[in-house]
Write a protein that binds this DNA or RNA. Sequence first.
DNA 1: GGCATTTTGAATCGACCACTCCAAAATATC
DNA 2: GATATTTTGGAGTGGTCGATTCAAAATGCC
Lengths: 202, 202
Amino acid sequence: MPRPRLVPEHEAIDIALTLFWSRGYDRTSIADLSAALGLGPSSIYNAFGSKERLFRRAIERYEETHVAPWLALISEPHDGDPAELVRTLMRGLARVYTGDDTPPGCAIFESGGTASPRDSQAAIITQRPRDALRRDLRQRFVEARRAGHDLSATPATLAAAVVSALSGMSQLACDGGSRAQLLNVADHVASGVVRRTRSSGS
Amino acid sequence: MPRPRLVPEHEAIDIALTLFWSRGYDRTSIADLSAALGLGPSSIYNAFGSKERLFRRAIERYEETHVAPWLALISEPHDGDPAELVRTLMRGLARVYTGDDTPPGCAIFESGGTASPRDSQAAIITQRPRDALRRDLRQRFVEARRAGHDLSATPATLAAAVVSALSGMSQLACDGGSRAQLLNVADHVASGVVRRTRSSGS
DNA sequence: GGCATTTTGAATCGACCACTCCAAAATATC
DNA sequence: GATATTTTGGAGTGGTCGATTCAAAATGCC
């Protein structure tokens, strides 16, 4: 019954995500969002309440649309080679970080800034999915080890190493690294997950 | 002959570095620096010219005092095992990232923010040492391969992987990761640098 | 002590920040 | 068409940002 919106909510969130993703939370102003949406500040606040809440919605959307498909690989029980699973996960995210029509890097790693001792909600918002990724990966490695796979390190260390590599791949993409470079890193890291008992290939 | 400074230049840079390191460039205001130094804004601008130039000096100091000692390991020719070299480098930086009386993480990775398409001098300032680290590491791997060492990937890929791991270790430290966790990641990554021809240990 | 030189403190600059207020506009229901 | 409900545009809120100005203060040199 009320006046309809000029730009649908999900579309507004997508636009906001692109801005936060490319410039980070701090360097994205309400004026930037206003210009990108073609709406006044009042419309933004009427729809989302605050810049922080809009950022939260944008990050949630990023998780759903860009990370969740690959995260599903490791959240459900899987009896395949854990190295191959990590390889698929990392290669998929490598492509996300170097998408042609998306900003370089990973929104979860880059857009929130560093988590300072004191208040910085944006950093906390992006830290939660990072921790979740470490936890899920670790759990997956625990299951893989139970299934008899010979891992090259403890599940916790492997999870930390894989997430560290992903974080660094995001950084590399932001520094201008190519998709091929990121894929090479992904392959190399994945190949180090399982213990290799003999020399492989040339 | 002139009036002496209340706080020496190198000491002021150290204090500024600690602030930039812990809060990042954007979230560190002139007022913050003024309070930490016990000086008025005019003194800061008289001594350093601008916030950006002070940041540049602080990052240079970080490179000299915290990174250069470990970087020296890979810049000069070395005939030892490249894996052991990487291990020493990464373990040393892991300790820097989790120092008791320094902020968590790496100033070069965390304090500058993401390099946006458009102007953000702070991001560019921190990108230069990141690129230098990749370049030096790659060159070191090239030499190691010439010396007959059997690397597990191309020098460029290995360099990108090691720097990615370091970047991720910095992120992990900012997320509350312990020194032991970072050291484990460092050991695991280093062990993957050389090709392992047979299973090693338990 | 007087002078040149530099730093220091305090007040202040315009610009931009996230955010708000309010009247006009656009719809569904009646 | 009248009314209720929500969005929209635009002006404007106080606050903080980086940066500046200027007189007072503190030194070495003479």
